[in-house]
Each structure stands twice: as structure tokens, then as C-alpha cells.
Amino acid sequence: MKKVSDIKIIYTPKIKHSKLPEIFSAHEAHLLFRKSWDIGKLYLVEQFKAMYLNSNGKVLGIYEISSGGLTYTQVDTRLIFLGAIKCCATSIILAHNHPSGNREPSDSDLRITRRLKEAGRLLEINIWDHLIITPEGYTSMRVSKIIR
């Protein structure tokens, strides 16, 4: 008989739930993302990250999905939701940077966000916001009512 690999799904938080930061606004999410960003890459290459939250709005962690070129980075839907499922997140805040300094979402940014919101609906994981971060500030697609 042929052998198959065991698959184990384990999540071991390193911080007590009572000590996890809470997110109440896009601004708070922006500040937490900025702390996790390599400032040299903020100005150089596009990166895409996901912040995972539990049902109480506490941050379970931030995961770098991809790091790409000057104007584009690959976004894999499966990787985003793999992280969410593994840490039992109920919502996600997405963020990527624009090294150009342009805070407006591109057509590609809007398509990706719609695709991720639809995938989240199927998995019952809410995409709470998508931030575009630049060296001088950020745009929240939720606050700007680009996404709902």
C-alpha cells in the first residue's frame, strides 16, 4: 500500500488574546501595517499584506502575501485565505503599497479587491478594508466607499 502525507493544521499564538491589539479604524490599521513594513521597500517595490482579525477585532497577525516589482506584485487568493483559515480569522484587512506615491486604486487594485471580497463571502471571512499605503499616507477603500 502506498503512503500518503499526514496534514496537520496547527495554530499556536505567541501572544495572549488579552494582549492582542484591537483595530477600530482604518487609521489604526494603517499605523500597524506601517510598523510591519520595511521602509526601504515601501519606496522601492510593491508588496501585498494581509492583517487577520478575530471576531472581536483583535489582530491575530500580519502576513506578507507577496513582494514584486516597481508597479505590480502577484496576489494569490489562496494564500490570503490559507492564512485566515489557519489562524481562525473572521475578517481581513488588506494592504499594499504604491512606491509611486499615488494613493488612488488602479483598475487592477479594484478587480483584486472585488475578487477577494467574493471569495471571502463564500468562506464567511469578511474583507473589512483594503488600504493603499504610500510613503506620505494612505487611502482606505472602505472609508472612501470604494468597497462596502
Rank of each mutant, 00 (worst) to 15 (best):
Ile7Pro: 05
Ile7Phe: 15
Lys8Asp: 10
Ile9Asn: 13
Ile9Lys: 13
Ile10Lys: 15
Tyr11Trp: 11
Tyr11Ser: 13
Tyr11Lys: 06
Thr12Ala: 07
Ser18Arg: 01
Ser18Ala: 03
Leu20Tyr: 04
Leu20Pro: 01
Leu20Gln: 07
Pro21His: 07
Glu22Phe: 07
Ile23Asp: 00
Ile23His: 01
Ile23Lys: 00
Ser25Phe: 03
Ala26Asn: 14
Ala26Arg: 12
Glu28Met: 10
Leu31His: 06
Leu31Val: 04
Leu32Ser: 05
Leu32Asp: 07
Leu32Pro: 02
Phe33Val: 08
Arg34Leu: 12
Ser36Arg: 01
Ser36Glu: 08
Ser36Ile: 00
Ile39Phe: 14
Gly40Asp: 12
Gly40Asn: 15
Gly40Pro: 05
Lys41Asn: 14
Lys41Tyr: 09
Lys41Gly: 11
Lys41Thr: 10
Leu42Glu: 02
Tyr43Asp: 12
Leu44Pro: 07
Leu44Lys: 08
Val45Trp: 07
Glu46Asp: 09
Glu46Ser: 04
Glu46Gln: 11
Gln47Arg: 02
Gln47His: 04
Phe48Pro: 05
Phe48Thr: 07
Phe48Ile: 06
Phe48Asn: 09
Phe48Trp: 03
Phe48Cys: 13
Ala50Ile: 06
Met51Asn: 07
Met51Ile: 05
Met51Tyr: 03
Tyr52Cys: 13
Leu53Trp: 03
Leu53Ile: 03
Leu53Asn: 02
Leu53Gln: 04
Asn54Ala: 02
Ser55Met: 07
Ser55Cys: 06
Asn56Glu: 14
Asn56Trp: 08
Lys58Asp: 14
Lys58Gln: 15
Lys58Gly: 00
Val59Trp: 01
Val59Glu: 08
Val59Gln: 05
Leu60Ser: 15
Leu60Val: 09
Gly61Gln: 01
Gly61Thr: 00
Gly61Asn: 04
Ile62Glu: 06
Ile62Val: 10
Tyr63Gln: 11
Glu64Gly: 03
Glu64Phe: 00
Glu64Val: 04
Glu64Asn: 07
Ile65Phe: 13
Ile65Ser: 11
Ser67Trp: 02
Ser67Met: 10
Gly68Asn: 07
Gly69Ser: 09
Gly69Met: 10
Leu70Glu: 09
Thr71Pro: 08
Thr71Tyr: 15
Thr71Met: 15
Thr71Gln: 15
Thr71Asp: 15
Thr73Ile: 05
Gln74Ala: 09
Gln74Met: 12
Gln74Tyr: 11
Gln74Thr: 10
Val75Phe: 03
Val75Tyr: 02
Val75Ala: 06
Val75Ser: 04
Thr77Ala: 12
Thr77Trp: 11
